[in-house]
Design a protein around this nucleic acid. Structure first.
Length: 753
DNA sequence: GCAAGGTC
């Protein structure tokens, strides 16, 4: 019997393809180390093997393993080896290596073409065909398999050129910068075609903020009254104080006369269906990082709760039965919202700008049988609400605009009121700011209640937050829907940036500065655009992969030469930034700049003025911010220490201050009467330990989340101090000895009540 | 230990 071997890019697509081609009779076969789907059609045996992305991975030969012993110019010209990445898939494929026909049915894009060709060298390829489909619908799949085309080796080559160029540039420059700055192993400095220009964006924004010179401007506000107070503002720009004061004196205490009044209704459009980028951006507003949101979305997808989370598409395909999904959701906690959608005469979905054909937008496909918790619940709910919002009505708002004459000067008052909530009732994450202005008549005279001349300052541009960063990356074509969140994560884990809004660290700044001083190219987004052009040339056959990669190698030799010529300057720049530290803002004592310098095991907070008393070493493993408040004991500024998974700790900037000592003592040690002090373990977990350590080794574990409060009570059973845990509104009293009778008693008592 | 791109 003829054997057809079908290669799919991923499990989900593979199942779908087999299901359609087999007219629902396909069977999954699983044995140790192998997985495939089998079915018969037209008296032929078909075996479909689903991969999970790339099977091979580019790398350098192992002789280049040692960074310090490898010559970078030799590394540039080294041959590239391809290592197996997915052994299980290869093992499965080998069982069918003599198949009569091989049909590559990976995603129809550049990387898909490459993934498909990666498996060929493990097979005795006789007859190789390509099935091209751009949606997993019955028609597309059936058409693609009855009209197979040839594999486009040029397209696959273009993707391989990308892979090799990224590896060569990334590895060579990563090694160069790490070695030049003496930062090796876990502290290494990474360079890449996508990550470095992304960091460049953050750097550029930081420079704009720093060089920003605020300008004063003025506003004149008059509060009128008709049934209710409402505000009107002078209708021209006021940059000059004298002019502003003159006009203010002319209008002050004068009545207004309505010159015109207009009212118009307008739509606030419902949002478009979710693609990956928009989904990750919205998740970040819920406090969930893009990397974590993606991780959760993948799991929800694997559980069959949502559709495939990697997509650029923002238009629902016709084949999706939107109504049946809403009906499913009707039997969930979103029944109210689902009812709103179903109450419409017709369900018409919104559409976004991108109509791609590979995958649908992200939408819920079923309702969880067991209630989700934590961030999983938040993510699922976000996707459900977004989905329902795209199927519901636009909101309707009314804008009223009044032009008011006050002693010959024009004032304007603008009101905005929601008339119909529409999708806001479903998508509760967004709200609309309303402002009330009463209905007015032409020539109506208004009495002013309050007159105010306001002095304002223009503000610097904002730092990126992860949401606007994702958007900026997308618009500059940096990374893909599947990799952007990963790249942002890398910038954090390499210590180039911190926080959200995203702030560049001294390391990130010194690194980009040293690039810009030498050869800014590698920190600019154009690298990607140029690579894209070369890839197109390979795909169209005007250049070969080797031409492009070798040309790229020649360029890298020259770039590397520039950098190697300035090795000592680069080392100095990066280390100078690290030694100066990060600015924490102004010193509250003398207004000079306050610096936070990070060392291996502690931080130093130091004022720019050598004579200032603020110069403290803080032994802590969290992130440090300056707090607005002052220490109640010594009135020095307070700092906030943020540790992952813990509530922030606020303490006095002076480690020796009594406030800190008092604050951390939770009672006396039952063993030797020493103080039980709040401490942090090497792994950043908090616990109570005796102050007489190492003489006394008494410790108690503590819950990591929630605010801890001391009491003056002692446990009646074991003598440990009783502590209160505050979690939101809940207060919970417990003994730090976990298995103590107190805790059992406490719980029983609680249940009784 | 290096990149970016697939996907789990």
């Amino acid at each position: 019997m003829t054997l057809n071997l079908i290669i799919a890019e991923k499990m989900d697509a593979g199942r779908r393809i087999a299901y359609i081609l087999s007219k629902k009779t396909s069977k999954q076969k699983r044995s140790k180390g192998s997985f495939y789907i089998e079915f018969e059609s037209n008296n032929e045996r078909n075996v479909l093997v689903p991969l999970s992305g790339h099977v091979l991975e580019a790398d350098f030969p192992s002789d280049f393993k040692d960074w310090l012993k490898s010559d970078l110019n030799l590394l540039i010209d080294s041959r590239i080896v391809y290592n197996v990445k997915n052994q299980r898939a290869i093992n499965t494929l080998k069982n069918f290596k003599d198949a009569d026909n091989i049909i590559i049915a990976t995603d129809y894009d550049r990387e898909g073409e490459l993934i498909g060709t990666e498996v060929l060298k493990f097979l005795n390829a006789k007859n190789i065909k390509r099935a091209k489909f751009s949606a997993l619908t019955e028609k597309e799949i059936n058409d693609a398999f009855s009209n197979t085309i040839n594999v486009d080796y040029n397209l696959a080559d273009s993707a391989q050129a990308r892979e090799e160029i990224d590896l060569i540039w990334g590895a060579v420059l990563t090694r160069f910068f790490s070695i030049a700055s003496n930062r090796l192993w876990k502290d290494f400095i990474s360079v890449g075609r996508v990550q470095t220009p992304t960091l460049g964006l953050i750097y550029k924004r930081e420079m704009e903020i720093r060089s920003f010179v605020p300008e004063k401007y003025y506003k004149i506000k008059i509060t009128f009254n008709k049934n209710r107070d409402f505000d009107a503002y002078y209708n021209n720009e006021l940059k000059d104080r004298k002019t502003a004061e003159k006009i203010f004196s002319e209008v002050k205490n004068m009545p207004g006369r309505v010159k015109s009044f207009d009212k118009e209704e307008y739509y606030i459009y419902r949002p478009a269906p979710f693609n990956t980028n928009e989904f990750l951006r919205e998740a970040s507003y819920l406090g969930i990082s893009p990397a974590r949101a993606m991780n959760i979305a993948e799991k929800l997808y694997m559980q069959g709760l949502i559709s495939y989370p990697r997509t650029d598409n923002t238009v629902y395909n016709k084949s999706i039965n939107l109504k049946s999904i809403v009906e499913k959701l009707k039997k969930s906690e979103f029944s109210m919202e689902a009812d709103l959608v179903l109450s419409q005469e017709k369900i018409l979905p919104s559409r976004g700008k991108t109509e791609a054909t590979d995958h649908p937008p992200i939408y819920p496909v079923s309702v969880p049988s067991k209630e989700l918790t934590g961030d999983y619940k938040k993510i699922y709910e976000l996707i459900v609400r977004r989905f329902l919002a795209t199927l519901y009505k636009n909101a309707v708002a009314v804008r009223s605009t009044a032009l008011i004459d006050v002693n010959g000067h024009d004032f304007i008052s603008e009101g905005n009121i929601i008339k119909e909530n529409g999708w806001y009732d479903i998508y509760k994450y967004k709200s609309y700011r309303e402002y009330f202005v009463p209905d007015l008549e032409k020539n109506e005279v208004l009495n002013g209640r309050d007159y105010e001349l306001q002095e304002k300052e223009t503000e610097p541009p904002r730092r990126y937050d992860v949401s606007s960063l994702l958007k900026a990356m997308e618009s500059l074509n940096l990374g893909t829907k599947s990799t952007r969140h990963d790249i942002i994560d890398k910038l954090y884990s390499r210590n180039f940036v911190t926080g959200n809004p995203v702030k560049i660290t001294p390391l990130g700044e010194g690194f980009i500065k040293s690039i810009i001083d030498t050869n800014p190219r590698i920190s600019e987004p154009e690298m990607t655009a140029e690579l894209e052009m070369d890839m197109d040339k390979i795909a169209s056959g005007t250049k070969t992969k080797d031409d492009v990669v070798n040309e790229s190698r020649r360029m890298l030799h020259s770039v590397l030469n520039d950098f190697q010529g300035r090795t000592s300057e680069i080392n100095k720049t990066i280390n100078d930034y690290l030694n100066t530290g990060e600015s924490l803002g102004r010193c509250p004592l003398d207004g000079n700049e306050l610096f936070l310098i990070k060392y291996r095991d502690h931080y130093k907070i130091k004022c720019g003025d050598e004579n200032c008393r603020i110069d403290f070493n803080i032994y802590s493993n969290g992130r440090i911010q300056l707090n607005d408040s002052k220490c109640p004991v010594c009135s020095l500024p307070m700092i906030k220490i943020i540790r992952k998974g813990q509530s922030p700790e606020v303490k006095c900037i002076d480690p020796a201050c009594d406030y800190n000592k008092e604050k951390d003592i939770y009672g006396t040690c039952p063993a030797d009467g020493g103080n039980l002090v709040l401490r942090q373990s090497r792994y950043g977990k908090r616990f109570l330990g005796c102050s007489n350590y190492p003489k006394c080794t008494v410790t108690y574990p503590l819950p990591q989340k929630g605010i801890l409060k001391k009491t003056d009570k002692k446990c009646q059973y074991c003598g440990a101090p009783i502590i209160v845990l505050i979690n939101g509104r809940r207060h919970f009293e417990f003994c730090p000895k976990i298995d103590c009778e107190f805790n059992r008693g406490g719980k029983i008592e609680k249940n009784k009540v």
